[in-house]
Computed example of a mutant assay.
Amino acid sequence: MCDEDEQLVRYYFGELSDAEKAAFEQRLVDEPDLAERLETFSRCVDAHQGAECCEESEPEKVPVPRRLADRTAHAILAGHLERAGECVGRKRYNLVEVVAIGVAATFLGGLILPAIEASRESSRRDQCAFNLATLGQGLQSYSQDHGHIPQIGLTQNAGLFTLMLAEGRYFDREELQRSLVCPSSNLSQMIADGELKVIIPTREHLEAANAEQLLELQRLMAGSYAYRIGYFQGRSFIPFGGKGGCRSAILADTPTLASGTEVVSRHHGKCGQNVLFGDGHVAFVSSCWAPDDVDHLYLNDDNQLAAGHDEYDIVLLPGDVTPLGVQLFELGE
């Protein structure tokens, strides 16, 4: 609504000061067009038709500006048209136009914002997959030198694989720290906010840490990912050595450990997780089950976050969990 419309409405409802009222009434005397607009507005209000009953209901009563044809022809002959901004200072909108613009903006926002967020999540998922592929290259180099990927002992936490990669100089420690953070994880946001930092400790660092410090190091040293551990053969524990192919998972987005809920990764909107496989390729798996199999990526056959019961029972553990595991609930309860 432009200033003149606002002043007309305020005058009609008696909201002008004495000085403003006197000045406006003088304008009504001097400006017949303004007086006619006031009369039209009064009829609309009296008829309870609101703001939308305006000049469009009686277009024949809107006076045509004097000498419009002459002034338009003069402007064309002069080689330009007057710009509205030069005449009135700024674009004027009435109330109906403002509401229409607001509705259109809301509608477009409802379409565009979800698309933008979906594009951002797609980008984060791609970066996560790139991180896993980078880690896979380091694991492959380690395997070429040692005959197997970093192996986790029965009482060791799964995140120790990062220490082994750093010790062998398969990664610069800062590069490794960056590669261990999924952009879609809560950890990524906490790092951005300065609340946490992924640290790849040395063995000396671990030995010198007190109990509280050790737990924190173990919790963070694998970053956003869960690592493949081994399985039991009878009473013997067999560390996973990296043998496998395109269906043998080695690394994946870490699961959320919350009693009473499913053991799933929440990094990508709980829609699935990126998984690094034994042949080096990375794929997005839309469930917690290994592709074309019934084996859960994070739980053994007893639905425990612990070592598998045989070589076909694949289990990927968060960085602070050992193959002895964390007793969890039965799935479906």
Rank of each mutant, 00 (worst) to 15 (best):
Q177E: 10
C2I: 15
Q273W: 02
V263C: 13
G89S: 06
L206D: 00
K270S: 12
C128M: 10
R90H: 15
V263I: 03
G234C: 08
L187S: 05
R90G: 11
E6P: 08
G102V: 06
F130V: 12
T106F: 00
L187V: 06
T256P: 07
S123I: 11
K91L: 08
S248A: 14
R228P: 02
R203F: 12
T40L: 13
R71L: 15
G168V: 07
Q26I: 08
G159H: 04
T256G: 03
F237D: 01
A306W: 05
S248D: 14
F240C: 00
F107K: 14
F284E: 02
R83C: 09
A290E: 10
Y231I: 09
A78G: 15
Q218F: 09
E212W: 00
T155M: 03
F13P: 01
D253I: 11
L135Y: 00
D292Y: 09
A105R: 06
V45T: 13
N274C: 05
G245N: 15
P291H: 06
C288E: 12
S57D: 10
F107L: 15
R27V: 02
K61E: 08
I238R: 01
G147C: 03
R219Y: 09
S122L: 12
D70Y: 09
G242A: 04
T134R: 07
L154N: 06
V96E: 13
L316N: 02
E212K: 08
A158G: 05
E333N: 13
E55Q: 11
Y93K: 13
N186W: 01
E86Q: 12
A100K: 10
L81Q: 12
P201L: 06
Q137G: 11
N300T: 07
G308P: 07
N300D: 08
F240G: 01
V96F: 00
D310I: 00
R178M: 03
P291I: 02
L215P: 13
F13L: 09
A249G: 02
Q304I: 08
V98Y: 04
G159T: 00
G89C: 13
R219K: 01
C2W: 10
D193R: 09
E117M: 12
N186L: 11
V45E: 14
S287T: 11
Q140E: 15
A307G: 05
E82P: 08
W289K: 13
Y12D: 04
G278A: 10
R37G: 11
G110L: 08
Y298P: 01
G319L: 07
A166N: 03
I152K: 02
G319S: 04
A51F: 09
G245D: 11
P59D: 00
D5M: 12
L95I: 04
V64C: 08
Q177T: 07
T256N: 06
E262L: 11
L160I: 02
L276C: 09
E262H: 15
G260I: 05
R178H: 05
Y312M: 13
I229M: 06
G278N: 03
Q127F: 13
L68N: 03
T72G: 13
A290N: 07
R10F: 04
S179G: 05
Q7A: 09
S119D: 02
S185G: 09
F232C: 05
S122M: 12
A78I: 10
I250L: 08
V275N: 06
A47L: 12
